[in-house]
Simulated scan of single mutants.
Amino acid sequence: MLLSVIVPAFNASATISATLKSISASLVDIAFEVEVVVVDDGSDDGDSLVIAIKDYPFVRLVVHESNKGMCAARNTGIKASRGDFVTILDADDEFVEGWPERLQSIISEWPEDCQLCYSACVNSNGSPTVSEPAYRGRLTYEDLLNERHSGEYLPVFRGNFVRTQLYQDLGLRKSCGIVSYLYFAKECDFWITPIILRIYHDQRQGSVSSGWLTEKKARETALCYEKLFQEFSAEYRRYAPRVYHTKMLRYAVYRKVGNLSGIWRPWLQGFSMRAIPEFLATAFILVMGEGVMRPLIMFARRIGVLRKYG
């Protein structure tokens, strides 16, 4: 068995050594082979990246001459992979100690008809990044639409499946994962396991997931939502109407943070008798000035009014 680990890297020379070390630290007397495909996505620190990875013989480096965005980098790595199984690891995250044995346990429980497995994660403090840390079972297309078993997971694919499907590349710097995963879920159920493989460093300065309330990232998230509604609006309305309305409200907030016009139309479309508290809270956020709006959103996320992960 061969595992391919895809590591997209954009200006990540300062963090990728810890990522690669976390992979290599447990590669002793394991029952399978590992390859790591690092994709330099047009970084400004390409020379430093080469130095950072030179001590890891299992790494192959693929270079984008210009920055193409996270999904493009993932797809480049996936197409270059050879593994029976393929996973995606950010260049500022790490595998947990003893991860190969955990992976083998995952594979032993993973139903053959599921082409993708979600492995639960923890953050830097050891706290779960998923809503149901003990859940083990299937995730259907309808579950994904309804945001059931939500959170931040590590995706592990069967190699032949992901090399055929690939991620939906919208040309954005950030990932628009939900669009890709809905397309994947149309093909097959996912498997969710509580076995943890990844430490998700979401609070590190400059991390992939940081700065989500900056104008630039908010604009990209708004574009992601536009694509989501374009492709899956009918399914949301049919199978997950409440989630459809709350997503419209989030879309309005991202347009506001991104300094984009047209915030009130999606707000109105987000009205639902089942989501009145969210509807009114969003209105309050939208009328606030910059100095109040961003701290209010961060507070709402911290106390759980807005989801922190997923």
Rank of each mutant, 00 (worst) to 15 (best):
F161Q: 05
I199W: 06
H245A: 11
K54T: 07
E290M: 06
Y167V: 01
P155M: 03
G126H: 07
S210N: 12
T164C: 08
H64W: 08
V96Y: 07
Y251W: 12
Q205F: 00
R60Q: 13
D55C: 11
E152K: 14
W99I: 03
G83C: 14
G126T: 12
F58E: 05
S210I: 12
Q269H: 14
R301G: 11
A240C: 12
R294L: 13
W191K: 01
E235R: 04
A240S: 03
D41P: 04
F95Q: 04
S119E: 08
V7F: 01
R242W: 05
S66M: 06
L166D: 08
D45E: 13
P277C: 12
G289S: 15
G258D: 09
V156C: 04
V243M: 09
V37P: 01
V50N: 03
P111H: 10
P8F: 09
T129E: 02
G289R: 11
S26T: 13
V5L: 14
K21R: 09
K216T: 09
S24H: 15
L145S: 00
K79C: 09
D92E: 08
D202V: 15
S127Y: 09
C224E: 04
A234C: 12
L213E: 05
F32H: 02
K256T: 00
S207T: 13
T15L: 08
A14C: 05
Q203F: 10
E132H: 13
E65S: 06
L170G: 00
G177P: 02
N125V: 08
D93E: 05
D202Y: 14
S209R: 08
A91V: 02
F271I: 13
K68Y: 01
G126A: 12
H245W: 04
K68G: 01
S150A: 15
P100H: 09
T246Y: 09
S26Q: 10
D47S: 11
W267M: 03
L144N: 00
F161P: 01
R136N: 07
